[in-house]
Design a protein around this nucleic acid. Structure first.
Length: 270
DNA sequence: ACCCTCCTGTCA
DNA sequence: TGACAGGAGGGT
């Protein structure tokens, strides 16, 4: 469940569960999730859990007698899930890829498709994503226009880039363009200043509402600690091919851009 | 600025 | 059996 609102939801839900606890150990069951060097994490405390782009960022205190602080970025990709269990007895082991044991309880990482990654960092600066968080203060529509520049990409593909805006994925890109009333087929550089403003406003409106609803959850598994979003009930166009557009009742169109589905209303979005 | 691939599962 | 799935890095 991996776009900005889902990752934000995961991070927020983990804070009260793991903050202040001491790590007993980390066991990696699937070596392919390891990226970069893996320092020793046992004995450190979890200082905080936040979101960095689409990654869940764990901040660890220094070890008693070792070097400095440590950060771990967990990227859930398509199917990664972080599940908290109080008793480590008898949890589901299918697709279990890593296990964090804390002083009480454990944090389990499940990932069916095994695209997820763990990456450790020695400094906070190194964890910073390449793009701008769309919910960050200070971002304005002029900056959107500047980032788009003369990009020849279609605006849907541009929104999916993580080196400009971070956090948008396939669901929210379609939803944002619907709210903004802009066709996903438009060349990014063709957007006007007014449309840059509509894109930014739509982005923030959609993301905030999705976060308020704990994100979008398709599969009907319920995560141990209530990681079940409800925003799927509010999706205007995503996954709704041939259903009536909520604004004009014309059938929602599905098309493929960059090998990924895009949904939009050909009547309302120009 | 694309297309493919990584991996596993589900559904028509 | 083939299309498709919330992602992104690598190659052309």
């Amino acid at each position: 469940m991996p776009e900005l609102p889902e990752v934000e939801t995961v991070a927020r839900q983990l804070v009260p569960l793991v903050r202040g606890r001491t790590v007993v150990g980390l066991r990696v069951l699937d070596p392919s999730l390891k990226h970069g060097r893996f320092p020793r994490v046992a004995g450190r405390q979890v200082v905080d859990v936040t979101r960095s782009g689409k990654r869940v960022l764990f901040h660890f205190s220094p070890c008693a007698s070792r070097d400095g602080e440590l950060w771990l970025a967990v990227h859930l990709r398509m199917t990664g899930r972080l599940i908290w269990v109080d008793e480590s007895r008898g949890p589901e082991t299918k697709h279990l890829r890593a296990r964090f044991r804390l002083d009480r309880g454990a944090l389990l990482f499940y990932d069916t498709r095994r695209f997820g990654t763990f990456r450790f960092y020695r400094s906070f600066e190194d964890t910073l994503p390449g793009g701008v968080d769309p919910l960050s203060q200070g971002l304005n529509s002029r900056e959107i226009g500047r980032m788009i520049g003369n990009s020849k990409q279609n605006i849907k593909a541009w929104l999916l880039r993580q080196d400009r805006l971070v956090g948008l994925g396939n669901i929210y890109a379609s939803e944002i363009l619907f709210v903004a009333g802009i066709s996903p087929l438009r060349e990014a550089s063709s957007l006007t200043a007014v449309e840059h403003d509509r894109v930014l406003r739509a982005t923030r409106r959609v993301l905030r509402r999705a976060i308020k609803n704990c994100g979008t959850t398709f599969s009907d598994f319920q995560d141990t600690q209530g990681l079940t979003g409800s925003y799927q009930n509010y999706l205007a166009v995503y996954g709704r091919e041939d259903e009536p557009c909520p604004r004009c009742r014309a059938p929602v169109v599905r098309l493929v851009q960059q090998q990924r589905s895009t949904y939009f209303c050909a009547q309302c979005q120009e």
